[in-house]
Simulated assay, not measured.
Amino acid sequence: MRTTLFARGAPARSPAVIHLHRHDLPDGLDLGPIVAIDTETMGLNPHRDRLCLVQLSAGDGDAHLVQIVPTAMGGRGADCPNLKRLLQDPAVTKLFHFARFDCAALHLHLGVTVAPVVCTKVASKLVRTFTDRHGLKDLLKELLGVEISKQQQSSDWGAPDLSAEQMAYAASDVLHLHALWARLEGLLAREGRLELARDCFRFLPARGALDLLGYADPDILSH
Rank of each mutant, 00 (worst) to 15 (best):
R2T: 13
T3A: 08
F6G: 06
F6E: 13
R8D: 10
G9F: 06
G9T: 07
A10C: 13
P11M: 10
R13K: 15
R13H: 14
S14E: 15
P15C: 10
P15V: 03
A16R: 12
I18W: 12
I18V: 15
H21L: 14
H23I: 03
D24L: 03
P26C: 05
D27N: 09
G32L: 12
I37G: 07
I37D: 03
D38P: 09
T39K: 12
T41P: 00
G43N: 07
L44P: 02
L44W: 01
H47T: 10
H47G: 07
R48G: 03
D49L: 05
D49Y: 06
L51M: 10
C52F: 13
C52R: 12
V54Q: 09
L56E: 10
A58V: 06
A58Q: 11
G59R: 06
H64C: 03
V69K: 03
M73R: 06
G75F: 12
G75N: 11
G77M: 03
G77P: 09
D79F: 00
C80N: 01
P81T: 08
K84E: 00
R85W: 04
Q88S: 13
H97I: 00
F98M: 03
A99M: 09
C103F: 01
A104P: 08
H109F: 02
H109Y: 04
T113Y: 01
V114D: 02
V114E: 01
V117W: 09
C119A: 07
T120A: 04
T120I: 00
K121D: 02
K125A: 11
L126M: 12
D132T: 13
R133T: 08
D138H: 14
L139I: 10
K141Q: 14
L144K: 12
E147V: 14
K150S: 15
E165L: 14
M167L: 15
A170M: 05
A170E: 04
A170T: 08
A171S: 08
D173W: 03
L175K: 11
H178A: 11
A179K: 01
A179T: 04
L180P: 01
A182P: 00
R183K: 15
E185T: 04
L187C: 00
L188P: 04
A189W: 01
A189N: 03
R190E: 15
R190F: 13
E191N: 02
G192I: 02
A197R: 00
R198L: 09
D199P: 00
C200L: 04
C200S: 05
C200K: 08
F203H: 10
F203E: 12
R207Y: 12
G208Q: 03
G208N: 02
L210K: 07
L210S: 04
D211E: 11
L213V: 03
P218F: 01
